[in-house]
């Protein structure tokens, strides 16, 4: 499945400072549908190059990271249960505090 994954607010530093990743993710064999629950470990092992604890905590993202699926907060689409479709855009963004 073709997805566009974007990292911002400093999270891109965890993946070699590359913000936009066009990726092809295999569907899990058992269900044939891709959810955020599957995508997070995939991102963790395929894109995150350092300090994974700055991205993942337990089975979800660490506090202070917003996840947006097609420009919409994943809380509105079922969080980890959000089902992804071909060409979806998933954004991971760390909240900023500076000023």
């Amino acid at each position: 499945m073709q997805l566009t994954l974007e990292f911002g607010g400093g999270l891109e530093l965890l993946c070699d400072s590359v913000k936009i990743h066009n990726v092809d993710v295999d569907l899990p064999a058992e269900t044939q549908k891709l959810t955020m629950k599957h995508l997070l470990p995939w991102v963790r092992s395929n894109l995150i190059k350092e300090r994974p604890e700055m991205f993942i905590k337990g089975d979800t993202v660490r506090p202070g990271v917003l996840v947006l699926v097609n420009d919409c907060d994943w809380e509105l689409s079922g969080q980890l249960d959000t089902t992804l479709e071909d060409k979806d855009v998933v954004v991971f963004i760390s909240t900023l505090h500076g000023g």
Binding site: G10, P63, G64, T95, H97
Partner: peptide
């Protein structure tokens, strides 16, 4: 509502550092 738990300190960069 958006950020119920504060982020780890290592994720709170400041302009004076970053």
């Amino acid at each position: 509502c958006l950020f119920p738990t504060p982020p780890p300190t290592s994720a709170c960069q400041r302009c004076s550092d970053s």
